[in-house]
Design a protein around this nucleic acid. Structure first.
Lengths: 205, 205
DNA sequence: ACAGAATTTAACCATTTGGTTAAACTATAA
DNA sequence: TTATAGTTTAACCAAATGGTTAAATTCTGT
């Protein structure tokens, strides 16, 4: 590609991201993407030969961003608890910025599981995943006994679902006089951290 | 409608449910629904005049089933903890049977928030929602102090996300030699119940 | 048996959709 | 200036898609 053509290609990718995330591969319309990018269809096909290629570009970028931000946990100088707190902060920041991305990835992988096999393999390789860190801390008696997989899934659930289910929660709470996005921002994260402390420090097993 | 024509209409609805849940309103193809139901397009339009009407039938039925099963909690003869355990059992059963339904409802409401306003109002009216029960138990000092909304959202997150994110979890765990659906079935529910006990019984606040 | 309703089908139709083409415009480097 | 590569557009095209029509078949009660 050229040098200063940042603009048009970026506009296309941003528009495509928005439309694909909302409607998925089959539901998305190339015309809508072109309109949103402020160009016409032919130019769209000039940059990305077809729908599939454009979708792949969007999906890969989404997946990369997702795994990049959702596996970061601070450095080894911190305690396990601090690192998990940091992890939660990262996950929340990510969902705040890209609330639809998780849903998008899940949906598309669910429709076409091949996507996962093809795209994720290369990403996960060199990532310091959370589970080994926990297992090591457990072995060292730094933290309480637990199943690290179950724990990390619980943790991730408590972070992710408030954003995924936001359209429902918003509707349900509005009727009861609550503002869901307010509750989410102010209270959920604290509750998650409380859960972490509980699980790491409990003495009985 | 007729009397014994259960069959065709039911076949259509089942097929439509499957296709709409997978691809959403815009992504779904009427031809695919007809094929899956084993009939042709014209018959499809004979039963449901158009795509929108068919979608509404599916969506309403999904929403109804969802709220029906996800608000049931056993009777008042049980303790709060028992009722919440029962609630978790119900939620798990529901997700086991209709793993895609939550995602479907969230997605469609997210695309068209009007859907929620229109369809949910009538359903939520006469349902004994979880929050008031908790608030009352807190007031009576039966259970520990807590924010019932945050609690119920945490709880629901821990139940729902393992099913919603299953396509991702499956992929990620398979590489590490775990079987996600096994883990989910055997361990997650127990962890959720443990969480309930922790929150209800803790003395420090 | 038979009239009328419900059910089913094949053949169509108009619009939408993904994609192409060829021509025009713009920057740029020699 | 001018040849060249990169960029943009309007006009098209074939296939897919939602939807219709009219005729044929099956079911129903009388």
């Amino acid at each position: 590609m050229g040098l200063k053509d940042q603009s048009t290609e970026a506009k296309i990718l941003n528009a495509a991201k928005e439309v694909f995330m909302k409607f998925g591969l089959y539901g998305a319309r190339m015309q809508d993407i072109a309109d949103l990018a402020g160009i016409n269809k032919a130019l769209l096909h000039y940059y990305f030969r077809n729908k599939e290629k454009l979708f792949n570009a969007v999906f890969e970028s989404a997946l990369e961003k997702y795994f990049q931000q959702v596996t970061v946990m601070g450095d080894t100088s911190m305690s396990v608890e601090e690192r998990l707190f940091k992890y939660v902060d990262n996950v929340f920041d990510f969902f705040e910025e890209y609330p639809q991305m998780t849903m998008f990835i899940i949906k598309e992988v669910s429709i076409n599981p091949e996507l996962f096999k093809q795209k994720v393999s290369k990403l996960k390789e060199n990532k310091p995943f959370v589970v080994p860190m926990l297992q090591q801390a457990i072995d060292n008696k730094e933290i309480a006994e637990m199943d690290p997989i179950v724990f990390i899934v619980n943790l991730h659930s408590m972070c992710a679902y408030p954003f995924l289910g936001a359209p429902l929660f918003r509707g349900m709470m509005k009727n009861n006089g609550y503002d869901w996005d307010q509750v989410k921002k102010e209270k959920i994260k604290d509750a998650v951290k409380e859960f972490i402390s509980f699980k790491l420090n409990r003495k009985d097993v």
